[in-house]
Protein backbone atom coordinates (compact mmCIF):
# COMPACT_ATOMS: atom_id res chain seq x y z
CA UNK A 1 0.00 0.00 0.00
CA UNK A 2 1.30 3.42 -0.92
CA UNK A 3 1.94 5.90 1.86
CA UNK A 4 0.76 9.49 1.50
CA UNK A 5 1.34 12.86 3.06
CA UNK A 6 -0.30 16.14 2.13
CA UNK A 7 1.00 19.36 0.65
CA UNK A 8 -1.55 22.14 1.07
CA UNK A 9 -4.23 19.48 1.23
CA UNK A 10 -3.10 17.60 -1.89
CA UNK A 11 -2.20 13.96 -1.18
CA UNK A 12 1.35 13.12 -2.28
CA UNK A 13 2.48 9.50 -2.50
CA UNK A 14 5.98 8.69 -1.28
CA UNK A 15 8.37 5.85 -0.76
CA UNK A 16 10.26 5.31 2.44
CA UNK A 17 13.48 7.33 2.44
CA UNK A 18 12.17 10.04 0.16
CA UNK A 19 12.31 13.64 1.26
CA UNK A 20 9.32 15.94 1.00
CA UNK A 21 10.98 17.49 -2.05
CA UNK A 22 11.65 14.15 -3.78
CA UNK A 23 8.09 13.04 -3.38
CA UNK A 24 6.63 16.42 -4.32
CA UNK A 25 8.68 16.71 -7.52
CA UNK A 26 7.87 13.11 -8.45
CA UNK A 27 4.18 13.92 -8.03
CA UNK A 28 4.51 17.07 -10.14
CA UNK A 29 4.03 19.39 -7.17
CA UNK A 30 6.47 22.30 -7.40
CA UNK A 31 8.25 23.57 -4.29
CA UNK A 32 10.51 26.58 -4.99
CA UNK A 33 14.19 25.67 -4.63
CA UNK A 34 17.67 26.75 -5.70
CA UNK A 35 20.38 24.58 -4.16
CA UNK A 36 18.43 21.39 -4.67
CA UNK A 37 18.90 19.15 -7.64
CA UNK A 38 17.68 15.56 -7.66
CA UNK A 39 20.94 14.42 -9.28
CA UNK A 40 22.99 15.37 -6.24
CA UNK A 41 22.86 14.76 -2.54
CA UNK A 42 20.46 17.17 -0.82
CA UNK A 43 22.22 20.21 0.50
CA UNK A 44 19.74 22.31 2.43
CA UNK A 45 21.64 25.59 2.27
CA UNK A 46 19.46 28.06 0.37
CA UNK A 47 16.40 27.36 2.58
CA UNK A 48 14.12 28.62 -0.20
CA UNK A 49 12.23 25.30 -0.05
CA UNK A 50 11.25 25.94 3.56
CA UNK A 51 7.82 24.46 4.26
CA UNK A 52 5.86 23.79 7.41
CA UNK A 53 5.62 20.09 8.19
CA UNK A 54 3.14 19.44 11.00
CA UNK A 55 3.69 22.96 12.22
CA UNK A 56 7.47 22.88 12.13
CA UNK A 57 9.59 24.84 9.65
CA UNK A 58 11.81 22.46 7.69
CA UNK A 59 13.68 22.45 4.40
CA UNK A 60 11.66 20.24 2.05
CA UNK A 61 14.82 19.06 0.28
CA UNK A 62 16.31 17.44 3.36
CA UNK A 63 13.34 16.53 5.52
CA UNK A 64 12.02 13.00 5.22
CA UNK A 65 8.43 12.54 4.10
CA UNK A 66 6.30 10.73 6.64
CA UNK A 67 2.90 9.08 6.56
CA UNK A 68 0.04 11.47 7.15
CA UNK A 69 2.24 14.54 7.55
CA UNK A 70 0.49 17.81 6.79
CA UNK A 71 2.83 20.07 4.87
CA UNK A 72 2.08 23.72 4.21
CA UNK A 73 3.85 25.19 1.22
CA UNK A 74 1.84 28.03 -0.29
CA UNK A 75 0.63 29.92 2.78
CA UNK A 76 1.10 33.68 2.98
CA UNK A 77 3.52 33.19 5.83
CA UNK A 78 5.75 30.88 3.80
CA UNK A 79 5.51 33.09 0.77
CA UNK A 80 6.74 35.98 2.88
CA UNK A 81 9.61 33.95 4.35
CA UNK A 82 10.66 32.70 0.94
CA UNK A 83 10.45 36.19 -0.44
CA UNK A 84 12.72 37.36 2.39
CA UNK A 85 15.27 34.63 1.67
CA UNK A 86 15.32 35.53 -2.01
CA UNK A 87 15.78 39.18 -1.14
CA UNK A 88 18.74 38.21 1.04
CA UNK A 89 20.31 36.32 -1.87
CA UNK A 90 19.88 39.37 -4.07
CA UNK A 91 21.34 41.93 -1.66
CA UNK A 92 24.35 39.88 -0.59
CA UNK A 93 25.72 39.71 -4.13
CA UNK A 94 25.84 41.95 -7.16
CA UNK A 95 22.84 40.95 -9.22
CA UNK A 96 22.65 43.48 -11.99
CA UNK A 97 20.13 41.62 -14.11
CA UNK A 98 20.18 44.09 -17.02
CA UNK A 99 23.90 43.43 -17.39
CA UNK A 100 23.91 39.66 -17.02
CA UNK A 101 24.04 37.14 -19.86
CA UNK A 102 22.07 34.66 -17.82
CA UNK A 103 19.13 37.00 -17.42
CA UNK A 104 15.91 35.38 -18.56
CA UNK A 105 17.38 31.93 -18.01
CA UNK A 106 18.40 32.48 -14.39
CA UNK A 107 16.83 30.33 -11.74
CA UNK A 108 17.25 32.92 -9.00
CA UNK A 109 15.24 35.36 -11.11
CA UNK A 110 12.71 32.70 -12.05
CA UNK A 111 12.10 31.57 -8.49
CA UNK A 112 11.81 35.21 -7.41
CA UNK A 113 9.27 35.82 -10.20
CA UNK A 114 7.37 32.73 -9.10
CA UNK A 115 7.34 34.06 -5.55
CA UNK A 116 6.24 37.47 -6.86
CA UNK A 117 9.23 39.26 -5.39
CA UNK A 118 9.19 42.76 -6.86
CA UNK A 119 12.36 44.10 -5.27
CA UNK A 120 15.05 43.26 -2.73
CA UNK A 121 13.81 45.69 -0.05
CA UNK A 122 16.87 45.33 2.18
CA UNK A 123 20.14 47.25 2.35
CA UNK A 124 22.51 46.07 -0.37
CA UNK A 125 25.99 44.88 0.54
CA UNK A 126 27.59 45.63 -2.85
CA UNK A 127 30.49 43.31 -2.06
CA UNK A 128 33.62 43.82 -4.12
CA UNK A 129 34.04 40.61 -6.04
CA UNK A 130 36.04 39.96 -9.13
CA UNK A 131 35.48 38.23 -12.44
CA UNK A 132 37.71 35.33 -13.43
CA UNK A 133 37.91 35.11 -17.22
CA UNK A 134 41.16 33.12 -17.27
CA UNK A 135 39.58 29.97 -18.70
CA UNK A 136 39.25 29.86 -22.50
CA UNK A 137 35.68 28.56 -22.47
CA UNK A 138 34.30 29.58 -19.09
CA UNK A 139 34.05 32.66 -16.89
CA UNK A 140 33.21 33.11 -13.23
CA UNK A 141 31.52 36.26 -11.96
CA UNK A 142 31.85 35.87 -8.20
CA UNK A 143 29.43 38.72 -7.61
CA UNK A 144 26.58 36.49 -8.75
CA UNK A 145 27.43 33.36 -6.78
CA UNK A 146 24.66 32.32 -4.36
CA UNK A 147 26.75 29.57 -2.69
CA UNK A 148 24.34 26.79 -3.64
CA UNK A 149 27.38 24.53 -4.12
CA UNK A 150 25.84 22.81 -7.15
CA UNK A 151 29.14 23.27 -9.01
CA UNK A 152 31.02 21.98 -5.95
CA UNK A 153 28.89 18.85 -5.89
CA UNK A 154 28.82 18.33 -9.66
CA UNK A 155 32.59 18.62 -9.94
CA UNK A 156 33.18 16.26 -7.04
CA UNK A 157 30.43 13.72 -7.57
CA UNK A 158 30.06 13.61 -11.35
CA UNK A 159 33.25 15.00 -12.89
CA UNK A 160 35.52 13.51 -10.24
CA UNK A 161 37.61 16.69 -10.24
CA UNK A 162 36.71 18.66 -7.11
CA UNK A 163 37.50 21.94 -8.79
CA UNK A 164 35.33 23.99 -6.44
CA UNK A 165 35.15 24.43 -2.69
CA UNK A 166 33.89 27.01 -0.24
CA UNK A 167 36.19 29.33 1.68
CA UNK A 168 35.74 32.09 4.23
CA UNK A 169 32.73 32.16 6.47
CA UNK A 170 29.65 34.15 7.34
CA UNK A 171 28.87 36.91 4.88
CA UNK A 172 32.43 36.54 3.58
CA UNK A 173 31.93 32.91 2.53
CA UNK A 174 32.93 32.52 -1.09
CA UNK A 175 33.62 30.05 -3.86
CA UNK A 176 37.19 28.73 -4.16
CA UNK A 177 38.81 27.29 -7.27
CA UNK A 178 41.26 24.44 -6.99
CA UNK A 179 44.50 25.85 -8.32
CA UNK A 180 47.42 27.56 -6.61
CA UNK A 181 46.54 30.81 -8.37
CA UNK A 182 42.88 30.37 -7.56
CA UNK A 183 42.14 30.88 -11.26
CA UNK A 184 39.85 28.62 -13.23
CA UNK A 185 42.21 28.77 -16.22
CA UNK A 186 44.82 26.93 -14.15
CA UNK A 187 42.56 23.95 -13.49
CA UNK A 188 41.63 21.05 -15.74
CA UNK A 189 38.03 22.20 -15.85
CA UNK A 190 36.39 21.52 -19.20
CA UNK A 191 33.36 23.15 -20.75
CA UNK A 192 31.96 19.63 -21.06
CA UNK A 193 32.10 19.06 -17.29
CA UNK A 194 28.84 18.76 -15.48
CA UNK A 195 30.00 21.56 -13.22
CA UNK A 196 30.02 23.96 -16.17
CA UNK A 197 26.29 23.48 -16.68
CA UNK A 198 24.74 23.40 -13.23
CA UNK A 199 25.04 27.02 -12.12
CA UNK A 200 21.49 28.28 -11.52
CA UNK A 201 22.64 31.92 -11.84
CA UNK A 202 25.15 33.76 -13.99
CA UNK A 203 28.16 32.98 -11.81
CA UNK A 204 29.65 30.25 -14.00
CA UNK A 205 29.13 31.21 -17.63
CA UNK A 206 29.98 29.45 -20.83
CA UNK A 207 31.81 31.86 -23.07
CA UNK A 208 31.08 32.61 -26.73
CA UNK A 209 27.33 32.29 -26.47
CA UNK A 210 26.04 35.24 -24.44
CA UNK A 211 22.67 36.75 -25.26
CA UNK A 212 21.96 34.03 -27.81
CA UNK A 213 18.22 34.01 -27.23
CA UNK A 214 16.20 37.13 -27.92
CA UNK A 215 14.16 38.62 -25.10
CA UNK A 216 10.78 36.96 -25.11
CA UNK A 217 12.20 33.57 -26.09
CA UNK A 218 14.44 32.95 -23.11
CA UNK A 219 13.92 30.07 -20.74
CA UNK A 220 11.65 31.75 -18.25
CA UNK A 221 10.30 34.62 -20.36
CA UNK A 222 6.86 33.13 -20.98
CA UNK A 223 6.38 30.36 -18.47
CA UNK A 224 7.30 30.11 -14.79
CA UNK A 225 9.94 27.87 -13.28
CA UNK A 226 7.23 25.63 -11.83
CA UNK A 227 6.36 24.66 -15.41
CA UNK A 228 9.73 24.99 -17.16
CA UNK A 229 11.83 23.29 -14.49
CA UNK A 230 15.36 23.98 -13.26
CA UNK A 231 18.12 25.60 -15.28
CA UNK A 232 20.14 22.40 -15.32
CA UNK A 233 17.38 20.39 -17.00
CA UNK A 234 16.99 23.08 -19.63
CA UNK A 235 20.78 23.21 -20.12
CA UNK A 236 20.84 19.51 -20.86
CA UNK A 237 18.10 19.69 -23.44
CA UNK A 238 19.70 22.62 -25.26
CA UNK A 239 20.11 21.75 -28.88
CA UNK A 240 23.58 23.19 -29.39
Amino acid sequence: MTAYFQIDGVPIPFESGQTIMDAALAAGQYIPHLCHNPEFRPHGSCRVCTVRADGRFVAACTFPASEGAKVECASDELRELRNGLLQMLFVEGNHVCPGCEKSGACQLQAVAYYCEMLAPELPHFFPRRHVDASHPDLAIDYGRCILCELCVRASREVDGKSIFAIGGRGIKAHLLVDSPSGKLGDTDMSVHDKAAHVCPVGAILIKHRGYDRPIGQRLYDQRPVSVVGDVIQAEETRDD
Binding site: S45, M88, E92, R169, G170
Partner: peptide
Protein backbone atom coordinates in the same frame (compact mmCIF):
# COMPACT_ATOMS: atom_id res chain seq x y z
CA UNK B 1 26.94 36.38 15.47
CA UNK B 2 27.85 37.97 12.16
CA UNK B 3 31.47 37.05 12.86
CA UNK B 4 30.62 33.48 13.88
CA UNK B 5 28.00 32.49 11.32
CA UNK B 6 29.45 29.65 9.26
CA UNK B 7 27.85 31.10 6.13
CA UNK B 8 26.30 27.86 4.94
CA UNK B 9 22.62 28.76 4.96
CA UNK B 10 21.16 31.93 3.49
CA UNK B 11 19.21 33.34 6.44
CA UNK B 12 22.09 33.13 8.89
CA UNK B 13 24.82 34.17 6.47
CA UNK B 14 22.97 37.28 5.31
CA UNK B 15 20.62 37.87 8.24
CA UNK B 16 23.33 38.09 10.90
CA UNK B 17 25.16 40.70 8.80
CA UNK B 18 21.95 42.67 8.25
CA UNK B 19 21.14 42.63 11.96
CA UNK B 20 24.67 43.77 12.76
CA UNK B 21 24.34 46.75 10.41
Amino acid sequence: FAEESCGFCTPCRVGTALLRD
